[in-house]
Deep mutational scan, measured.
Amino acid sequence: EDGINLEEIREFAKNFKIRRLSLGLTQTQVGQALTATEGPAYSQSAICRFEKLDITPKSAQKLKPVLEKWLNEAELRNQEGQQNLMEFVG
């Protein structure tokens, strides 16, 4: 629908959760960090719904690039050390 690749979103949601957990981050931490930079659309409950795919494809499509960018950045910081990650997450 609307050129939205559901399979891709499903895959990303699954990987997002795995990668988030491997960084040792909670949904709350991700939500707080993103709410600070991106606004309330990225709250803990939004992250939770995204991971469960309990949102419309359109919403998922909107969240995905922001979550992807944030997660990549978080992983980079983590490679530089846990301290850097925690500063990034705030």
Rank of each mutant, 00 (worst) to 15 (best):
K17L: 01
G39A: 03
F88Y: 12
G39H: 00
K64R: 11
L25C: 02
Q44H: 11
E7L: 04
L53E: 06
A74T: 10
Y42M: 06
I18R: 15
D2W: 04
T37K: 14
L67M: 01
R77C: 07
N84V: 10
L34E: 05
R20W: 00
G39D: 06
N15R: 11
Q32Y: 03
V66G: 04
L63F: 11
F12A: 03
I18P: 06
R20I: 03
N78C: 11
Q61T: 09
I55F: 15
P65M: 10
K69F: 05
G90D: 15
E11P: 01
E1A: 03
E1D: 08
E8M: 01
A36M: 11
E75C: 04
L63A: 09
E51W: 02
C48A: 15
E75G: 00
R20M: 01
Q83F: 05
F12I: 05
L85Q: 15
N15W: 10
E1W: 05
L71V: 07
E11K: 13
Q83W: 06
V89E: 13
L63M: 15
E68R: 01
E75K: 01
L23T: 01
G24S: 01
T28R: 15
T26V: 02
R19G: 04
L71T: 03
T37P: 03
K62M: 14
F12M: 01
A74S: 03
Q82R: 15
F12E: 04
R19D: 01
Q79I: 13
F88K: 14
A36S: 08
Q27Y: 08
A74V: 07
F50G: 01
E8N: 14
K17N: 14
V66F: 09
N72L: 12
K58H: 09
Q83E: 13
E11M: 05
R20S: 03
T26I: 01
G24V: 02
L53Q: 10
C48N: 14
A36I: 04
R49C: 05
R20K: 08
P40A: 10
G90I: 01
T56H: 12
F88M: 04
E80Y: 10
P57F: 09
F50D: 09
N84A: 15
L34D: 02
G3L: 15
N5C: 08
I9V: 08
T35L: 11
L71W: 04
E1Y: 06
A13E: 00
L53H: 07
M86C: 14
E1M: 14
G81S: 12
V66A: 08
K62A: 13
W70E: 08
G31F: 08
R20T: 01
Q27H: 08
L85H: 13
S45G: 12
T28D: 15
P65R: 08
T56S: 14
L63E: 00
I47G: 02
E7W: 02
I9H: 02
C48E: 15
Q29N: 09
I55E: 03
A46E: 13
L71A: 04
L63C: 02
Q29P: 01
G31I: 06
Q82E: 13
T35N: 09
G3P: 08
Q83G: 12
T35F: 08
L71P: 02
Q32H: 12
P40M: 15
T28H: 15
A74G: 03
K69E: 08
N72M: 09
G31M: 02
L85I: 13
K14M: 06
L6T: 09
Q79R: 12
A41P: 05
G31P: 00
E7R: 06
Q83R: 13
I9C: 05
N5P: 07
R77E: 09
S59L: 14
R10N: 05
E11G: 04
E68C: 01
W70G: 05
Y42F: 15
A74N: 04
E1P: 00
D2F: 12
L6S: 10
N15L: 09
E7Q: 07
L53A: 07
Q44A: 15
